[in-house]
Simulated assay, not measured.
Amino acid sequence: MSAAGPDFARDFEGLGAVVTGGASGIGAAVAALLRDRGARVAVLDRDPSGAPDGVLALKADVTDDDAVRTAVDTAAAEFGALHTVVSNAGVGAVGTVADNSDDEWHRVLDINVTGMVRVARHALPHLRAAAAERPGCVSVTHTCSIAATAGLPGRALYSASKGAVLSLTLAMAADHVREGIRVNCVNPGTADTPWIGRLLDRADDPAAERAALEARQPTGRLVTAAEVAAAIAYLASPAAAAVTGTALAVDGGMQGLRLRPAT
């Protein structure tokens, strides 16, 4: 640290990080940003071929407990320590409660919620060890969603899974704060990601659907992956050493603002 304060351009120098779902969209943006700010980064993904250059790309499905354990242990061994976990892997779901089968509910919850549990379970021994050496530098950050806190039509299953992620974040923050492990989440609004792209491709009128999604956010545009990554990097960084049990909205004002219709 200089006399002027910390160098945020390299604030992850010497830290080991794992990013799940890090080969595309928000996860890839996070992995690249942490790498650029000095972290040694491992990407865990079902298909890690799209992982950013300069990271350790590991094939792992978050529904496979053995694969998650192996990948997390491999990253910790390669880096010598594990300080930061970004649990970002997840899937979307569309429909009301009448539109998805039990099997689909089980699949989505297994990925979006239990997948985060598996990653945390196997990362915790490494995070505890790192917290003893680098206080304030150890964190878990979950990618949650505005769907956890706002009622969105046609998103019952997805919203339920993200509501569970929000509750999981708070419970983990309470469980591990005295171990020196901070746990937070980000709640993106509708983000311009590959999943939204596929959703738009299936719409009867993709342009009209995109316009409706943009209009739903007070800023009038979709959130970018880079904007969500910046928020995650803050929560994971030593600059947020006093921040735990927090849900940071990156939603263009969607959660808190109630604008009058434009005239």
Rank of each mutant, 00 (worst) to 15 (best):
N184P: 07
L56V: 13
W195P: 02
S237L: 05
T244E: 08
G16S: 10
D205M: 04
V68A: 04
Y158K: 08
H126K: 06
V19A: 02
S49D: 14
D99K: 07
W195M: 15
L248R: 01
V183S: 10
D110E: 15
L157Y: 05
P238C: 05
P218K: 08
D53K: 00
L170R: 14
S139F: 05
T190E: 02
T149N: 09
A247E: 13
L109M: 15
V243L: 05
T169I: 04
G95T: 07
G256L: 10
G180T: 10
A28F: 03
V117L: 15
A207V: 13
A174G: 10
V55F: 03
T224K: 04
G253P: 06
V41K: 02
N88Q: 06
A57M: 12
A156L: 07
D7C: 09
L257S: 14
A207T: 13
D53G: 11
A233L: 01
G95R: 08
P261Q: 10
P206Y: 07
R260F: 09
I181L: 09
S145A: 11
L168T: 07
V91S: 03
A215D: 12
A76I: 03
E133R: 15
C144L: 02
L152H: 13
V119N: 01
I26L: 12
T149K: 11
R10D: 02
T263I: 04
A9E: 15
D53P: 06
I146S: 08
A164W: 04
L127G: 05
A207F: 03
A93N: 04
A233G: 01
D65K: 05
D61Q: 07
L248V: 02
P125I: 07
I26M: 14
G252Y: 07
G50H: 07
V62D: 06
L109A: 11
T70I: 00
A233P: 01
L257V: 14
T246E: 11
R210V: 01
M116F: 03
R118L: 13
D53A: 14
A150N: 05
S161E: 03
R258A: 13
I26Y: 02
V165H: 05
T63E: 13
D103Q: 13
D73E: 09
M254Y: 15
H83R: 09
D11A: 12
A211P: 06
N112K: 03
T190N: 07
G92S: 12
A249Q: 13
G197P: 12
T149A: 14
V165I: 11
R216P: 00
P48M: 14
L124T: 12
A120T: 15
A3D: 13
I232K: 01
V186H: 02
T84M: 03
A132V: 06
L222H: 06
I196N: 10
D175V: 08
L82M: 08
V250K: 01
A262W: 06
A31L: 05
V72I: 15
W195L: 15
A42K: 05
D64R: 04
H106A: 13
R258H: 14
V97W: 11
L33E: 14
A226R: 01
D36P: 02
G5F: 14
N187G: 14
T96H: 06
E13W: 09
D66G: 12
A240C: 09
G95V: 05
A31P: 03
S24I: 00
P188A: 08
A174M: 09
C137T: 06
A51K: 11
D45N: 06
P135C: 08
G154D: 09
A207G: 13
A225S: 14
T63I: 05
A28D: 04
